[in-house]
Design a binder for these strands. Structure first.
Lengths: 221, 221
DNA sequence: GATACCATTTTGGTATACCAAACTGGTATC
DNA sequence: GATACCAGTTTGGTATACCAAAATGGTATC
């Protein structure tokens, strides 16, 4: 694998894993020495991560994107538009057997599953559901939205009950799609996204002092 | 303005203006000498244009994105999802005076207006309409879709009647939004996009031999 | 103590040298 | 004539040197 892809992947993991906090400044020279690559691949990685919304310009330099509560609300609206469109397409397909694979993915999580895995599966559910639509643009949009939501969802304070509720909602959506009931699937998905947004924004808003104490930049809604 | 932004802007204009044909190969050295910049800003521009979908990888090198009829259909579905979502948001706003500005923009076109201007206004209509929603992600999505459709729409064979019909449809959509009738606006916009897609794909499909004769790569649906 | 100012350092933007892999064109071989 | 092969060239990937602008930090001045 090329250095460019290597730097991009490792830097993305550090940002998503909060090893580099939201709002933290980045210098090309630091990344260069941190990953043992020269500035050329570093700059390529920065340009790519900028389009993913994980980093942004801070004056002349670079900074990890802050947690932006207003942005989370806008992303939820965007998600709803594209995910509902995707699920309607999928519900209209003759072959909806791909649903079973996603259901199996959900079922691979149980009480002993680490939180990190719940997190990953929770995002992959939406991405894989969008993939079934066969529309590359809807898929890309969902993947992009999930990437931007990833850190916020990780910071969200979620209890067992919330995880279980999301799991049940996911299964209910799959059942509706599998049954070809596009309207029901759309309604369930819509409510799921709205509820997810509310819990997420509320949790982060309530915990914003704690987050700032950890050195994370949090932009109010 | 920096060299990077300069190269990016000029190269984008050459691609959108079909001065470099769909499918044509690009080398970093050619761009370097063409615009009098070194490879560093050239590479930055290429990476950006790649995320816009205007260029892509062709093996190890670069190539201008071909006209892809299947992709045009997928973009139409994507557009419908995000544009309808945006228009529903806008129809629910208290202050919808921004509509008047867009209407004035439409009215600035008449029989003497050059085709290039009709083209630009036709895309800006959708972009500005999405902007009124206030949702950055919906706006970005529409702008991105329009960029990807730009070359295809330019190559489309459109008569006076088609331009007039699109103009009337645009006005009808604005009227519905202004009146706060989200359902009507959504329906009109949905039909407008579907009709636009059908005419576009049919036109390019019928003319695909002519396009290929001009050296343009056209990927069938 | 606050502030304006200057020297130094840091940083992103740019140009360029070098390399390995891929491509090209010609040639020898069958 | 087709094909396998090889030398030369081209190309993207990478490292690095240089620059101007910005940030930094210390100091003189009030």
């Amino acid at each position: 694998m090329s250095q460019m892809q290597n730097v991009e992947r490792q830097l993305r993991e550090m940002i998503l894993g909060l090893e580099i906090g939201p709002g933290e400044r980045l210098t090309e020279r630091w990344i260069e020495s941190r990953f043992g690559a020269s500035r050329t691949p570093v700059r390529a990685a920065l340009l790519r991560l900028e389009t993913e919304g994980l980093i942004g310009r801070d004056g002349r330099g670079w900074a990890v994107a802050p947690i932006n509560l207003a942005e989370l609300g806008q992303i939820a609206v965007y998600r709803e538009a594209v995910e509902v469109a995707a699920v309607r397409l999928t519900a209209a397909l003759e072959d909806r057997s791909g649903i079973d694979v996603i259901a199996a993915m959900l079922d691979s999580c149980d009480a002993e599953t680490p939180r990190e895995e719940w997190h990953r599966v929770g995002m992959d559910f939406h991405i894989e559901l969008a993939r079934l639509s066969g529309n590359e643009f809807l898929l890309r949009a969902v993947r992009d939205a999930m990437t931007r939501l990833s850190r916020a969802r990780w910071l969200e304070v979620r209890d067992e009950a919330a995880l279980g509720r999301a799991w049940a909602e996911h299964h209910a959506i799959l059942d509706a799609v599998k049954g070809g009931d596009a309207e029901k699937a759309a309604r369930l998905l819509s409510n799921h996204i709205a509820g997810s947004r509310d819990r997420l924004v509320t949790s982060l808003h309530d915990d914003r002092r704690g987050l700032r104490a950890r050195g994370f930049a949090v932009v109010a809604a």
